[in-house]
């Protein structure tokens, strides 16, 4: 690897992708073996151990550790008949405000797991509704993982029956990229997109919109003041994930909110 910029030194078939930089370091040579053409740093080939090396099959999913924890969480949630939803969005899309209004409706037995890099401001805010809330601070981490969520579920007493038949709301770290890759054991990822963002977000962040089962367009009360085209947004979302459901609402005016609470009720009964 090039030590100054970290750029790749390997190029492969069958997939070709364009890089915006050139491999003109002058210290590599290439040769082909089998399927692809590889560019090796010369010092690797000169490594005295290389002649003695053996190939060891691994065939293991890099997310396998996370996925095993996620399956443990899912098993507990299923036993306890709990609907778990993983809320994802960019920071400031209105996840906490949506949850605060949802919890204040008192229609469901609920608990919250809050993920933020730092502070317990959000958990504190949601506890004010009367629902139990556990805050996870990820520190340098940019997403929640299934191991952290498992511990938080334990803190909430979920395995001991504290939320049987209820809804577990998991508010992920505000980030439209990384949380897409991590299964937490949830029934569905719910992605929020506020009208103060662009309607092209589903196209620009396709991994997240592909991973989600539901999209909620939030802050609809601001539509008269911003150039946000709801129809175009839904068309973009449809293009990325045709099976994704959608709702449009405002957590401050309450517009469209009953449809959301009804959606939750149906999803909870389906567990």
């Amino acid at each position: 690897m090039c030590v100054t910029c970290g750029c790749p030194t390997t190029v492969h078939a069958p997939h070709s992708h364009e890089h915006d930089h050139h491999h003109d370091h002058g210290h590599s040579h290439n040769h082909s073996h089998g399927e692809g053409t590889h560019y090796h740093d010369p010092h690797h080939d000169d490594h005295p151990d290389r002649a003695a090396a053996r190939v060891l099959k691994v065939e293991e999913d890099i997310l396998s550790v996370n996925n095993a924890y996620a399956e443990d969480n899912r098993r507990i949630l299923k036993q306890r008949k709990i609907l778990a939803l993983n809320f994802v969005s960019s920071p400031g899309s209105g996840k906490t405000t949506l949850l605060a209004r949802t919890l204040s409706s008192k229609r469901f037995t609920s608990a919250v797991i809050e993920g933020d890099q730092s502070t317990d401001i959000d958990a504190e805010r949601l506890r004010a509704t009367g629902a139990p809330a556990v805050q996870i601070n990820t520190g340098r981490g940019c997403h929640l993982d299934a191991h952290m969520v498992g511990h938080a579920m334990g803190d909430l007493g979920i395995d001991k029956g504290a939320l049987d038949g209820g809804i577990l709301f998991i508010e992920n770290v505000g980030n439209l990229v990384c949380p897409a890759a991590f299964d937490l054991g949830e029934a569905a990822k719910v992605v929020l997109l506020s009208v103060t963002e662009g309607e092209d977000k589903p196209l620009k962040y396709p991994d997240m919109f592909r991973a989600a089962q539901v999209m909620i367009v939030t802050k609809s009360d601001l539509l008269p003041y911003v150039p946000f085209d709801v129809g175009q947004c839904l068309a973009n979302a449809q293009k990325i994930n045709p099976a994704m459901e959608h709702l449009v609402l405002s957590s401050s005016s309450g517009e469209g909110f009953d449809a959301w609470l009804d959606w939750l009720d149906r999803a909870r009964k389906a567990v």
Partner: peptide
Amino acid sequence: VYTHDRALRIIDLDVV
């Protein structure tokens, strides 16, 4: 090695 799916795994290792 690139694939056209969601694969993200270690295939094998050269070890000594």
